[in-house]
Computed example of a mutant assay.
Amino acid sequence: MSEAQERAWSELAPRFVIAAPRDAAATSIRPGAAIDPHQVWGRHAPLIAEIGSGQGHAIVHAASGAPDTDFLAIEVFRAGLARTMLDAERAGVGNLRLVEANAPEVLQHLLPAASLDELWVFFPDPWHKKKHTKRRLVTAEFAETARTALRERGILRLATDWQDYALQMRDVLDEADGFERAFEGDWAPRFDGRVLTAFERKGSRAGRDIRDLAYRRVA
Rank of each mutant, 00 (worst) to 15 (best):
E144S: 08
E144I: 06
E144G: 08
E144V: 09
E144K: 09
T145K: 13
T145A: 14
A146D: 04
A146I: 07
R147K: 10
R147T: 03
T148D: 02
T148S: 05
A149N: 12
A149L: 04
L150W: 05
L150H: 10
L150Y: 08
R151W: 02
R151H: 09
R151M: 11
R151T: 14
R151P: 05
E152H: 03
E152D: 10
R153M: 06
G154H: 07
I155V: 13
I155W: 00
I155C: 02
L156R: 01
L156N: 00
R157Q: 01
L158N: 01
L158Y: 04
A159T: 06
A159R: 01
T160I: 09
T160S: 07
T160F: 03
W162L: 06
W162N: 03
W162Y: 03
Q163R: 13
Q163K: 13
Q163G: 04
D164L: 13
D164I: 15
D164G: 13
Y165E: 09
A166H: 03
L167I: 09
Q168G: 01
M169P: 01
M169D: 02
M169W: 04
M169F: 09
M169R: 01
R170G: 00
R170F: 00
D171M: 11
V172H: 05
V172M: 07
L173K: 05
D174T: 13
D174F: 14
E175F: 05
E175Y: 03
A176E: 09
A176Q: 10
D177T: 14
D177F: 12
G178C: 09
G178E: 11
G178Q: 11
G178I: 07
F179Q: 08
F179R: 07
F179K: 10
F179L: 09
E180D: 14
R181A: 15
A182H: 15
F183I: 14
E184T: 15
G185W: 00
W187Q: 04
A188V: 14
A188F: 13
